[in-house]
Amino acid sequence: MLVRLMYASRAVPAIDNDELHTILRQSKHNNPAKGITGLLCYSGGVFIQALEGGRSAVSQLYNRIAADPRHTDVVLLSYEEIGERRFAGWAMGQVNMARLNPALLLKYSATATLDPYVISGKVSMAMFDELVATASVMC
Rank of each mutant, 00 (worst) to 15 (best):
G53R: 06
A66W: 04
Q49C: 02
E80Q: 14
I82T: 12
A50R: 03
S78R: 04
S78F: 05
R70C: 09
Y79S: 15
R86Q: 13
Q60R: 14
Q49L: 03
L77W: 00
A50D: 09
I65W: 10
Y42T: 00
D73H: 14
E80L: 06
E80Y: 08
E81Y: 03
S78N: 10
L76N: 02
G83Y: 08
G44K: 06
L76R: 14
V58G: 04
Q49E: 08
A50W: 02
V74W: 01
G53P: 11
L76W: 00
C41I: 12
L76P: 08
G38W: 06
R86A: 13
A57K: 04
P69G: 08
V46M: 13
R70A: 06
V46E: 10
V58C: 10
S59G: 11
A57F: 10
A50S: 13
I82K: 07
H71A: 03
E80I: 01
H71I: 10
R86K: 05
S59L: 13
Y79M: 13
T72R: 14
R70H: 10
E81S: 01
S59P: 05
E81L: 02
F47T: 07
T37M: 04
E80W: 02
D68Y: 11
L40R: 07
I65A: 06
L61R: 09
I82P: 02
G38Q: 05
V75H: 11
E52F: 09
G53A: 05
Y62F: 15
Q60P: 01
I82E: 00
I36P: 04
I48L: 12
Y79E: 15
G44Y: 00
A66T: 00
H71S: 08
I36C: 08
V74I: 08
I36R: 06
P69F: 09
R64S: 15
E52Q: 03
V46A: 00
R64T: 15
G53C: 10
L76I: 00
L61P: 01
E81A: 11
A50K: 00
V75L: 07
A67P: 09
S43E: 13
T37V: 02
Y42H: 13
S43V: 03
G54K: 12
G45H: 03
Y42A: 09
D73L: 08
E80T: 11
N63W: 01
Y62R: 00
Y62L: 09
N63P: 08
I48E: 01
S56E: 15
G54L: 01
D68I: 08
G38L: 10
E52L: 11
S43I: 02
E80F: 05
I48T: 12
